[in-house]
Simulated assay, not measured.
Amino acid sequence: MKKRISEIEMLKGFLEAKGFNTFTNNGCFDIIAKKGRDMFLLKVLLNIDSLTENEARNLKIIAKYMSATPIIIGKRTRKENLHDFAVYERFGIPSITNTTFKNYIAGIKPFIKATRGGLRVKVDSKKINKALSKYSLHYLAQAAGISIKTARKCRDGNVISLEMACRVEELLNDSIACGIDLEKDYKVRDIEATCPFERLVEYVLGNFDMAFSFVKRTPFNMLLKKDEIMISTTSQNMSLIKNKIQQMRTFKEKFDVPSFIIIKRTKRKVMAGLPIFGIDEIKDLGCYENLCYEVKERSAARV
């Protein structure tokens, strides 16, 4: 545990030194880092196989709503240490070493894909076809010690084993690997309400013509999106709300995300700098546009 915490702190320091705005969380993610349009949602694990399916689903939902890139930073699997410059996957989320991530931030993309069949490389067909202007396909295969089938895969820009790629690179004295882009769109089913009050909130917001999902083990427990992203904490238990307020305020200030609280009933308009609504108030607002307007009005009031 201490080693993992140390890894998180060092990674946070690295990102801040590179100009990223960061937020740490002890839950489904460890760090959110944002700089310009780039936003990374990071989970640090010594063993990437310890990631659970529920954690992965929460990560992908947050990534989808916040247009962020989820990445697992790890050292090993149950069977082996992770290779630098290689991308592994757990539940569809890219998993890489600390060194690989730092290189990625510096603009150096990983180029090895770890699969069940071993380490693979996607070939840059432009470089191979440039070489084929000098050599025949059969010469390339023979000189590199690869099969004609593998040579054709190189020519067509397909995936080949790392070992075969190294042989071709040695012959051509040049890299033939395509860099791997870690950003991608996540299509994931939203998490449904799990308690009676969440189900009530879900029912009321179902008429607001917007996407929303509940999430777990985060500073907020709901993400909403139509024209812009909003976050919310919903609970009929005020003590649970109080435990999340400071984290929500910090998150809101760091990333400029409209944030609000939904509770069973309240006479207050603002609580600790965050807009607060009773569920009947949300129902009376009736639509997404009215909700956005009221959140902004109460945020500006801060009373």
Rank of each mutant, 00 (worst) to 15 (best):
E170Y: 10
L171Y: 06
Y293Q: 12
C178Q: 14
T99Q: 13
A114N: 07
Y288K: 08
I160S: 05
A114D: 13
K267M: 14
E202F: 00
E253A: 05
E9F: 03
L51K: 01
P258Y: 00
S136H: 02
L274R: 03
D49Q: 10
V215I: 11
F85W: 03
I71M: 04
N21V: 05
E253V: 01
A131W: 04
K126R: 05
G145D: 09
N290P: 12
S67C: 11
A143R: 07
C154G: 05
K254F: 06
D284C: 07
Y186A: 12
I263H: 14
E202P: 05
D174Q: 07
G286Y: 12
F214C: 11
V159G: 01
N158I: 04
F85K: 10
G179H: 08
D190N: 14
I245D: 04
L51H: 11
K34T: 15
L137M: 07
I96C: 06
E192V: 10
L171I: 02
T69M: 12
F20R: 01
G19H: 07
K283T: 05
I5A: 14
K134R: 12
R155E: 13
T22M: 09
H138W: 00
G118I: 00
K130G: 11
K3R: 11
A300Q: 11
N158H: 11
A211W: 01
K79M: 09
I72F: 08
K226D: 13
K187D: 15
E253T: 05
G179E: 14
I279K: 03
V201M: 11
M66D: 13
Y88T: 10
T233I: 02
A17Q: 12
K130V: 06
E7K: 00
L45I: 03
G179Y: 13
A211H: 08
G273V: 02
E169K: 02
I160Q: 02
M164G: 01
F197R: 03
F214M: 12
R76V: 03
L224E: 02
I5K: 07
K254M: 05
L41Q: 07
M164K: 07
L240W: 02
A193N: 06
N243D: 06
N98Q: 10
L41S: 03
S95T: 15
D190C: 03
E289C: 01
N173H: 03
I105M: 12
R57H: 12
F14V: 00
N25R: 01
P219G: 12
Y203N: 10
A114Q: 13
K134M: 09
I229E: 15
N237K: 14
D174W: 00
D181C: 08
T266W: 06
Q246P: 02
K34R: 15
A151F: 03
F220A: 01
K12F: 02
D174I: 00
F111P: 09
T24C: 13
S125C: 06
N237R: 12
F260C: 03
L171C: 07
I146D: 05
F197I: 00
T97N: 05
I261Q: 11
K126C: 04
M238Q: 13
N25P: 08
R116T: 08
A33L: 10
K149R: 13
N158D: 13
K43G: 07
T194C: 00
K283A: 13
V201N: 08
F277R: 03
G179R: 10
D124G: 06
M10D: 15
F91V: 03
D38E: 15
L41H: 09
M230S: 12
L137S: 05
V159S: 14
E297D: 05
K126F: 07
